[in-house]
């Protein structure tokens, strides 16, 4: 099948890529743009390791065709920190709270958490757990991930809100 040219805006940078219509966003991010922070854990839309934000919504990039992302704003894990030492509060909290072990689910977890906090800046523990319902982890038992997200929410909340 013929390739088509699509335009992706990833972490603020514009890319033009020629892709077969069946290629997924996860593959194009990893293989064409070398943004390998996005992980493929199942390629079936079940594990959430490939989660990215598209126009602010969290999506499984393994179930999203690259062509669907044409001219959309994508945020991947590489786009979250302002600089190598200037981590996003979620990233910082994941490190500090021991929410990372093998790290393979981590990029997807953080982007799902970002989506959650963007829409609900002061989530309850239950809401955090619900927010992670599409992300599987086999190392941590989730508790330190939930803790980290709570801590990041508290830190990011404007004065007077949160704890």
């Amino acid at each position: 099948m013929a390739k088509e040219i699509i335009e992706l805006i990833v972490n603020g940078d514009r890319y033009e890529v020629a892709v077969e219509p069946w290629r997924t966003l996860a593959e194009v991010l990893r293989e064409d743009l070398n943004l390998t922070g996005t992980k493929i854990g199942c390629n079936q839309g079940d594990c959430g390791a490939c989660t990215v934000l598209m126009e602010g919504r969290s999506v499984s990039s393994c179930l999203t065709l690259a062509a669907e992302a044409h001219q959309r704003e994508i945020v991947t894990i590489e786009g979250l920190a302002q600089g190598p030492e200037d981590l996003h509060p979620l990233q910082e909290a994941f490190v500090e709270h021991g929410a990372v072990q093998c790290g393979y689910c981590t990029p997807g977890m953080i982007l799902s958490a970002k989506h959650l906090l963007d829409h609900n800046p002061t989530p309850s523990e239950q809401e955090i757990r619900q927010g992670l319902s599409g992300n599987l982890c086999r190392c941590t038992g989730y508790s330190k991930i939930v803790e980290a997200i709570g801590a990041a929410a508290a830190k990011m909340a404007p004065a007077g809100e949160g704890e």
Partner: peptide
């Protein structure tokens, strides 16, 4: 905190 934590949360 694990020393490879930063690399893992940034996708590096």
């Amino acid at each position: 905190p694990r020393l490879d934590g930063k690399d893992k949360v940034t996708g590096r």
